[in-house]
Every structure is written in C-alpha cells, then in structure tokens.
Computed example of a mutant assay.
Amino acid sequence: MSEAIYCFDTATVRFAIYPEGLAGERVIAEISEDPLRDLFGAGGGGDTLVEAYKANAAIIDACALEHHHSAPHHPVLLETRDFEAMEHMAGA
C-alpha cells in the first residue's frame, strides 16, 4: 500500500517513509517532478508521477531514508542531483 500523492502546488509527489520500520515514526518526504520525469519515466500528469514513484519506490525510499538519517530535523525533498550516484552505478 502506497501513501503517495501528487501535490500540484509544490509540483512534487509526497510519500511516507518509516526510518524505524512500520511500527515507528512516519516521516513525510517529497520528490520533485524532474527526477520522476527524467530518471523514472513519468510522462504525463500527476497520476503518472505517482505511478513512477510507486514503480521505483524501493530506490526513492532508500534515497529519502539516507537523507533523513543524515539530517533528521530537516525536510526531505529529493531532486535529480540526489540520484546522481545511482546514475553512475547504472552506467558502470
């Protein structure tokens, strides 16, 4: 079950991560449209952005968790640059 929604006002997909597992704290994270379009194949409106998130949730959630653990008191907003290491690994 995904808790992802498209937020038109911020042009992001908002989703939940659970740093301590499902029984622990819920943290709301966001990913901007650009990586969803440029890296994860979204091609249309908000529904396709949410679908791109769902299809790639394992990668996106792992990146969001990494950001949360490195700065736990800051909002998590993922941009294309946050996935650069992933791109280099895929090209290797």
Rank of each mutant, 00 (worst) to 15 (best):
R26D: 07
L77G: 01
A62S: 12
E33S: 08
T10H: 09
S2Q: 10
L77T: 10
P19Y: 05
P35E: 02
K54N: 14
F83H: 03
A52P: 02
A16W: 07
V50W: 00
G91M: 13
H69I: 09
S32T: 14
P19T: 07
G21R: 06
A92C: 10
E33K: 05
T12P: 00
R26K: 15
D9M: 10
D82M: 00
A85S: 11
D34K: 06
A71E: 11
L49P: 04
H67L: 14
E25K: 13
P19N: 08
F15T: 03
C63Q: 09
A42Q: 01
E66I: 06
A64R: 01
R14L: 13
A64T: 05
H68M: 05
D34T: 08
H73D: 15
L78Y: 02
T48S: 15
L78E: 00
I59N: 07
E30G: 01
C63N: 00
D34H: 05
R37P: 03
Y6M: 04
S32L: 09
G46C: 06
E51M: 11
L49Y: 01
L65E: 06
F15C: 06
L78K: 04
I60L: 06
A55S: 14
P19H: 05
A29T: 04
D82S: 07
F8V: 15
L22A: 15
Y18Q: 13
V13D: 02
A58N: 09
E25M: 12
A90F: 11
D34E: 13
L49M: 12
R26Y: 07
A11S: 14
L22R: 14
L22V: 13
G45H: 07
E79W: 09
T10D: 13
L39H: 01
G43V: 10
T48G: 08
H68W: 11
L65G: 04
F83R: 01
I5R: 14
A55I: 07
A64F: 02
I17Y: 04
E66D: 14
A29G: 03
I31D: 04
A55N: 14
S70K: 11
A85P: 01
R37G: 01
T12Y: 03
R81I: 10
D61P: 01
A85F: 07
A55M: 10
A16P: 09
R37L: 03
I5M: 11
A58D: 12
E3A: 15
A55F: 06
R14H: 09
E51P: 04
M86T: 09
D38N: 11
R14K: 13
Y6W: 15
R37V: 10
H73F: 12
E66C: 05
S70M: 10
F15L: 02
G41Q: 04
E33Q: 09
D34I: 00
A92K: 10
A90I: 15
F15G: 00
D82I: 03
E84F: 13
A71W: 02
V50C: 07
G44E: 09
Y6D: 01
G43T: 12
F40L: 06
E79K: 11
V50E: 07
H67C: 12
P75Q: 11
I17V: 12
D47Y: 08
A90T: 11
I17S: 05
P75F: 09
I17M: 02
D82Y: 04
I31H: 03
P19R: 06
